[in-house]
Structures are given as structure tokens and as C-alpha cells.
Nucleic acid binder design. Sequence first.
DNA 1: TTTTTATTTGACCAACTGGTAAAACCAACG
DNA 2: CGTTGGTTTTACCAGTTGGTCAAATAAAAA
Lengths: 202, 202
Amino acid sequence: MTKAETRIQKKNQAVILSAGLKVFSQYGFRGSTLDQIATEAGLSKPNILYYFSSKDAIYRALLSRLLDDWLEPIYEIDASGDPVEELLSYTRRKLHMSRHFPRESRLFANEIIQGAPHIGDALSGELRNVVNKIAAIITDWVNEERIQPVDPHHFIFSIWSLTQHYADFDVQVRAVLPDKDPFPGAEKHLEDMLRRMLTMPA
Amino acid sequence: MTKAETRIQKKNQAVILSAGLKVFSQYGFRGSTLDQIATEAGLSKPNILYYFSSKDAIYRALLSRLLDDWLEPIYEIDASGDPVEELLSYTRRKLHMSRHFPRESRLFANEIIQGAPHIGDALSGELRNVVNKIAAIITDWVNEERIQPVDPHHFIFSIWSLTQHYADFDVQVRAVLPDKDPFPGAEKHLEDMLRRMLTMPA
DNA sequence: TTTTTATTTGACCAACTGGTAAAACCAACG
DNA sequence: CGTTGGTTTTACCAGTTGGTCAAATAAAAA
């Protein structure tokens, strides 16, 4: 039986997780320090360790929420919907995440680049399963000749990379396009490109 | 007048840079330690600092080589060549780099994700210039109706993200496709997709 | 060979790391 | 009011960090 949490606990846990997200997403696990997180959270270091038993515990708490959020848009793909529209709106949802939750995207990117030491299991477990499911749907759509032939797995990787790029490489994108918000252009570009790629020629 | 380097200097500098690349590309700058690099290089820590004045110096030496290597394939794009083939072979060169120099790709990714604190200037300088040049070429090709209309900047970003994904997110890719080498499939997929994108009428 | 120069090492340091312990503080409730 | 239980802080610790220094060693030049 888990004890009910007080208001203060809820608030401070949220503050710490938010600070941890900011710091971990920028420096990776090993490059981040409890002092940084404490400063960012406006709490003392021992106070942080009163709410989370260790640096690792903060990181793991963040990651366990993360994978769910990261995968959630893919569950909304509807096998009975219009193939092109389903895949385009999945892409739109992923791009939306890059725009509005770039820190989460970068935290994930850091974890993967470092070899996924904390979530490797989830990758070859849940992630792999859901990807294979969607890949099967895409294969069906191809066989029914409702979209152009594509390698379903690599196509999914393409959507991930195309959308996450705008969060993970934000600095680079803005260095090249300094004046404007890149996202409207990105959305139009991705929609055009993917639609062209998927659409059967008349 | 710079002194000529002895063969020991050459060898040890190379060994240290190689070890630094391995460590920095996995943990980022702040997450890496001189001890790790020393162990990886098979040298003592003070011995490493005999060849490079600081941890930062190793990192900067790596980055200064990196941007050149990273950009080099784009310089080979020939404005007078066949548009589709030029862009496809650029993509192939980038994918080739992801396959054979994944550590360099991840070092670069780490640096960008962290906000490019060491190479921000190069991004808004040299990188921006060369991208704008290639973007102008692509715009010409579009205007001459030799390829389908695309946003040139976002199209370049797309090539980068699609190809680098296979280096930076290698663990994820292999978690989903555990049995096979992903690169042959990736090459075919990217070629199919990009060709369709550039040639199919809207 | 001797001398000069380049290289490597072991001992060390101050600052920082994640984490602990106990005392002090504070809010609520009887 | 006083007690109780949750919260915060101060002081601290042992291990690690990037980096220094002088002495020891190996290589090259004379």
C-alpha cells in the first residue's frame, strides 16, 4: 500500500523531474550533476535526495515516463483508416512532439546515442513489438496497393529521423535558418515529401 | 615556426585522438574523463597531458577535424551534373559515413544536442554558407523543372537526418532489426524514396 | 660514448562528485 | 498549547575529477 503523497511531495517531485529533464537532456546522464539539478530546481542537494534516493533514480523516473510518451503517437495509427492520412498524421504528431517537447526528445536521443544502457530492454521489447505491428499494417497497405511499395521498417525509421531532427539538431537548423521558426516550413515540407512518396501514380 | 613532430609524437597524438573520439562520442564532453581516455589509449593520464594541454584541447582537436569531414561530401555536389543522381550520391556518401564513421557522427550529434557550445560559430559560418550554396543549386534545378519542387533547406535537413539516424540511433535500429545489417536495406530504401520524391509529379 | 632532448611516471593537489547523518525547522492536528 | 511527522539544512565523507611537478627514463644527436 503506497502512502498518499502530500502536496509538497507532489510539487517537489515535479520540480525535481522538470529540473532533471532540463539538465539530463543537455548533458546526458554522466555529464549531469546533482548540484546542477538542485540549482535548477531551487532546492538543496540533500533535499533532492530526500525525494529521490539517488541521481540514478531521478533519471530512471524520467525515462520510464519517456518511452510511453515517445511511443504514444504510434498507437493512434488506425489500420482501418486511410493509409496516407494515417501515416501523415503520425508524422505530424511526431513533429509536434519535437516542437513542443524538445527536451524529452533530446533526453531520449542522449540515451540512445550512449548505447541505451538504461532502456535497452524496452527497445528490444515493447518498442520492437509495436514497430513490428505497424510494419505489418504498412505491408498490408502496400500489398493492397493503397500506397507505393516501401520497406516498412526503414520507412518508420525515416519518420522518426525526419521529425526528431528538428528537436535534437535544433541548434543546427536555426544556425542555417536563423530568422524564421523552422517548424511551419518543416511541416509543409514533410507533408509534401511523404505524400509524394506514398501516393500511387494515377 | 612549428617544430617538426617526432614519430612518437605523431603516433601518440593519433592514439589519443582515437581514444578521445571513442570516449567523447559515447559520453559527450562533460560525461567523459581523462582517465577513461587514458585507459582507452593505453597511456597514463599525465602522459596524455604531455601531448594535449587539457581535456578541452583533445576535444577541440577532434571537432576541428570533424566539421571538415562532415561537410566534405557536400562539396562534391556538382551543379552541372544530373540533379537526381547528384542528390542521391550525396545521400549515399552521407550514409556511407554513418556506416563507416559512426563515432564521428555521434560525436557531432552529441555536440549539437548539447547546444554546440564548441562549434556554434562554425555552424552559423561555414556550414550556413555551404548549405545556402547548395540550396541555391537545388532551387535552380527546381526552377528548370529538372526535379520536383522541394524546399531546399528542409530537403537538405532531410538527407542529414535520414542518413545520420543509422549512426546515431544505431542501437535502436538494431533493436528493431536484430538479425540483419541494416545498411543495405537502408541504402535501397533511401534511394527508392528520394528518387520517387524528386521525380514523381505531384 | 657522452650529452642533450624527448618521453614517461609516481606522487600529489584542490575542486567537485554522489551521498549520508543528525540536528533544526515547520505545518498540522489534537 | 504541545506533540507528531513531514521537510529542510548544515556539516560532513570518501572517491573522483582535471591538472601539476619533479624526478626518472628512453631516445637521438654529438
